[in-house]
């Protein structure tokens, strides 16, 4: 799936995550900030990668600001951002 425009999803509320996505420079670049970075940083990155893979996104810049969201929430926010960034059908 091609990301053709920048898009955002989610909020900065506690237990939510805010995701920004934009077209990449040839590959996926993921950055994660999290209030639980020490405990869950790697798991969050893996979850983001999995969602991108499932949606066949190969060229996007993704920035996740996690406010202590559960994984299912982070996955939902990333998926929403991807679908919003893929442009009109």
């Amino acid at each position: 799936m091609d990301i053709i425009k920048s898009a955002t999803a989610g909020t900065m509320e506690s237990s939510d995550a805010y995701v920004e996505i934009e077209p990449g420079n040839g590959k996926n670049e993921i950055s994660v900030e999290s209030v639980v970075w020490m405990q869950f940083g790697e798991k969050i990155r893996t979850a983001v990668e999995e969602v991108l893979n499932e949606l066949e996104v190969e060229n996007a810049k993704v920035r996740v600001v996690d406010r202590g969201a559960l994984e299912c929430v982070i996955r939902a926010r990333v998926e929403t951002a991807v679908l919003r960034g893929k442009g009109e059908k």
């Binding site: 989610g10 559960l70 299912c72 939902a76 926010r77 929403t80 679908l83």
Partner: peptide, 15 residues
């Protein structure tokens, strides 16, 4: 609407 639909789906799927 799109965000909520996906969030609710994931809640039902994973929780």
């Amino acid at each position: 609407k799109d965000a909520a639909r996906i969030l609710v789906r994931n809640t039902m799927k994973y929780m």
